[in-house]
């Protein structure tokens, strides 16, 4: 559906996006993830044709953006960051205006606008000027504007930024509903959001792709290390450490918390070796009491932080 090759964008000397290439299949919901200033917005702007890449090409359905920008703009519905819309227009007038530009014939126009008002929950604000709407409603108008022409590709730049938790859930629900039929690309810096809404996550850092795949892929790729948390009473940290150090495969032992009641520590083991059996045997041989014994799942946050560390 979308094919980007060696996309590069320089703003004067600053390299915002550095030779990234990717393919997006039809029907995919892709999350573009990265810290602020990673090049997410620049990448999306190049996909929509708003920015011209310094180097590289974008092809959508085998049409190059340089050759036929108008044809490509018809295929894409785009919601820019923070939904900049015409302040003075009424919501209804604005959607009407977009429908006219998208050349929806006047018979279908009215039903289409009503349909979107229902989908995006705009019924109450249709006759208010956009300027007086709250951030959440503006974002919904922006979303309605993007979906209006029934485009095959939806590009959403931080669709949930600045919204309250209820609104975030609603917007995600809408995106998921649309994502069943359409190709969606959205950018965000919230990991749980990418995990909740996207089939595929691409992490961008300093203009380069540092990870690409579904959430499970990312977890696997990030690090093969296991982290096991153990909570015990009946011994000091030093005693426990001495005992556990002898277990084969243990790399580091970190103290998480020690008080009168309980010692909590994390053991990191390398590779695929499972050290849990040996640990348990050692604990059983003593009169320590075991309160906690769990394998920690490497959270996406950790992966994200690891991949996007400033270097």
């Amino acid at each position: 559906m979308i094919h980007a090759e060696n996309l590069t964008k320089y703003y004067r000397d600053f390299c915002a996006v550095d030779q990234i290439s990717f393919d997006i299949r039809p029907g995919e919901v892709l999350g573009l993830l990265g810290p602020n200033g990673a090049g997410k917005t620049t990448t999306l702007r190049m996909l929509t044709g708003f920015l011209k890449p310094t180097d590289g090409t974008v092809k959508i359905k085998n049409i190059s953006i340089d050759e036929n920008p108008l044809e490509i703009k018809k295929l894409i519905g785009y919601l820019p960051e923070s939904a900049p819309l015409y302040h003075e227009m009424l919501v209804y007038d604005y959607l009407n205006f977009v429908a006219d530009i998208r050349q929806i014939n006047s018979g279908k126009k009215e039903t289409r606008i009503r349909e979107l008002a229902n989908l995006c929950g705009l019924n109450k604000v249709m006759h208010k000027p956009i300027a007086v709407l709250s951030k959440g409603y503006k974002q919904r108008v922006g979303l309605a504007h993007a979906i209006l022409g029934d485009p095959e590709i939806l590009i959403l730049d931080e669709p949930t930024s600045g919204l309250d938790p209820n609104q975030i859930v609603e917007i995600r629900e809408i995106i998921r509903r649309i994502g069943r039929e359409k190709t969606v690309i959205l950018s965000t810096h919230i990991l749980s959001e990418a995990e909740a809404t996207c089939d595929r996550i691409m992490i961008i850092h300093q203009g380069r792709i540092v990870a690409d795949g579904d959430a499970a892929d990312l977890r696997r790729a990030a690090d093969e290390k296991h982290r096991i948390r153990v909570g015990l009473t009946g011994a000091t940290f030093d005693t426990i450490k001495k005992s556990f150090e002898k277990v084969e495969g243990v790399e580091t032992i970190d103290l998480i918390n020690e008080n009168d009641m309980q010692v909590t520590l994390d053991l990191v083991s390398s590779g695929k070796m499972d050290i849990r059996g040996e640990l348990y045997r050692r604990i059983k041989a003593t009169d320590w009491i075991l309160y906690e014994f769990s394998q920690q799942v490497e959270s996406l946050e950790t992966i994200f932080r690891e991949l996007t560390k400033e270097n």
Binding site: T48, A83, P84, V98, G149
Partner: peptide, 10 residues
């Protein structure tokens, strides 16, 4: 910023 919205319409 509506310039961006406008220029990405067909």
């Amino acid at each position: 910023g509506s310039y961006e919205t406008l220029m990405t319409l067909p």
